[in-house]
Simulated scan of single mutants.
Amino acid sequence: MDDLAGFLRTRRSQVDPAAVGIPTDSRRRVEGLRREEVAHLSGVSVDYYVRLEQGRATQPSEQVLDALARVLGLDATARGHLDRLARQRHHRATAPGGRVRPELLRVLDLVVDAPALITNHQLDVLAGNRLAGLLFGQRIPGLNTARHIFLEEAERGLYADWEKCTLDVVGHLRLAAGKHPGDPRLASLIGELSMGSDRFRRLWARADVRARTHGRKAYRHPLVGLLELHQENFALPDESGMELLILSAAPGSRAEDGLRLLAGLGVDSGDEPSTANAQVRQ
Rank of each mutant, 00 (worst) to 15 (best):
E272S: 07
L245H: 04
Q279K: 02
A154L: 11
V15M: 01
V111K: 03
Q282G: 14
A39F: 08
G241C: 04
P102H: 10
Q54G: 04
H90P: 01
S240I: 14
Y48S: 14
A95V: 01
H81I: 13
G142V: 03
A250N: 15
R106S: 09
G266C: 04
A211D: 12
V224T: 02
V267C: 10
S253C: 12
L189I: 13
H81D: 11
I246E: 03
Y48M: 10
L262A: 02
L72K: 00
V38L: 02
Q122R: 15
A218I: 06
E36L: 09
V30P: 09
D113R: 10
Q14D: 05
L167V: 13
Q14L: 13
T119W: 00
R99S: 11
G98K: 07
E228S: 10
R34H: 12
L117G: 00
Q138N: 06
T275Y: 02
A263M: 06
E243V: 12
T94N: 11
E232C: 07
G128M: 00
V50N: 05
D183S: 04
A69S: 14
V100W: 04
G157R: 15
N129K: 02
W204T: 07
R156K: 15
D25Q: 12
V71D: 03
S248A: 15
L110R: 13
V50G: 04
R220W: 02
E256W: 10
H40D: 13
T24D: 08
H221I: 03
V64C: 06
Q59H: 15
F200D: 05
K164C: 03
T77I: 15
L247T: 07
G266Y: 02
V44M: 14
P273K: 02
I22N: 01
D113W: 09
A19Y: 04
F200H: 06
V44N: 09
K217E: 05
G133V: 00
L135V: 01
D161G: 02
E37S: 08
G128L: 03
L173S: 03
S13I: 02
I118P: 00
N144M: 07
P237D: 13
K164W: 04
A211Q: 14
P96R: 11
V280I: 11
V107G: 06
L135Y: 00
T145K: 06
Y219V: 03
G43H: 07
G128I: 07
A78T: 07
P23W: 01
H81L: 11
M1Q: 12
L41C: 06
R185P: 07
S188Y: 13
L117K: 07
L265F: 00
E31S: 14
G196R: 08
A249L: 11
V280M: 06
N129A: 05
G97L: 13
L134Y: 01
D83A: 14
L52E: 01
E256M: 09
A278R: 04
G270Y: 06
A250L: 14
S253N: 11
L175T: 10
